[in-house]
Amino acid sequence: MSMQTIRAKEGVKMAVMEYIDAIRLAMKEEMERDEDVFVLGEDVGLKGGVFTTTKGLQEQFGELRALDAPLAESAIAGVAIGAAMYGMKPIAEMQYSDFMFPATNQIISEAAKIRYRSNNDWNCPLVVRAPIGGGVFGGLYHSQCPESVFFGTPGLKIVAPYTPYDAKGLLKAAVRDPDPVLYFENKKCYKLVVGEVPDTDYTVPIGKANVLREGDDITVISYSLPLHYAMEAAEELAQEGISAHILDLRTLQPLDKEAILEAARRTGKVLIIHEDNKFGGIGGEVSAIIAEEMLYELDAPIMRLCGPDVPAMPINPPGEKFFMLNKEKVKESMRHLALY
């Protein structure tokens, strides 16, 4: 339990829980708070989700608020969009983000654009939850990171929590947001990341990044699972006298420009890390923001450590190990930048 945890504030009761429990708790509390909130997706009802993320919701709220959908992601997204436009607050689950692509048209062409297209007459308070990432022996169809597919779509908000605290707070913020939010939860974090979660009704603001660790030698900017490796690597590098400043983006769209620039200014040396492949990924956009705004404060080329530009996560274990980021790879890149 050496995970990084958000420290308890005075007087607030904290429970230590796993990332997946924080997601489940957020849905449960929002459904209790607002009867317009409901979940739909494949196996979310009776089975309680293939990862148990929605376990207990059907027992508590009934079949109509924990709705088992047919194997048709475009229908799941479409039904949710319709319900949202009508005033409901749907949480649509894509069983794996890999299965999300049949719903892309609904999400990009309908959900993202309805407010703009109707000149503010209609909006779409929709949440789409989708587990991203590999490292679970899932191969091609259960390991993808689709952030970059949706990243360049104005009208969508995208969040990707790393801590259980953020997992709960961001999901609540997403449910209450008047516009469509894609909630990318990392399936390897489900049981791996444990942290303190206050039992108060709090939200984490969408669009705000978070400094996980302060340091003076290098700035690491990342989101989701790779932060786990970065935090571990930073701990070890501290023994070598290298101090790392680590920024968790938390929200990918819109990016928290101010926080990114502030973190980059701190050291002038920036390393951006994500599991999604390098070319066309979030890192390119973060890098461009820094280059546009503060070229003269940079002390080293902006560096990126990402998944390789190959078509898919291999199913064979050595191949998966090669593809995935890990503490060693992250540490090596951090050290390289520090020594530069």
Binding site: G268, L295, L298, D299
Partner: peptide
């Protein structure tokens, strides 16, 4: 090695 001795980054120059 001193190959980078005279490559000044923007931050250093500033």
């Amino acid at each position: 090695d001193t190959s980078m001795r005279h490559r000044y980054s923007p931050a250093v120059q500033q």
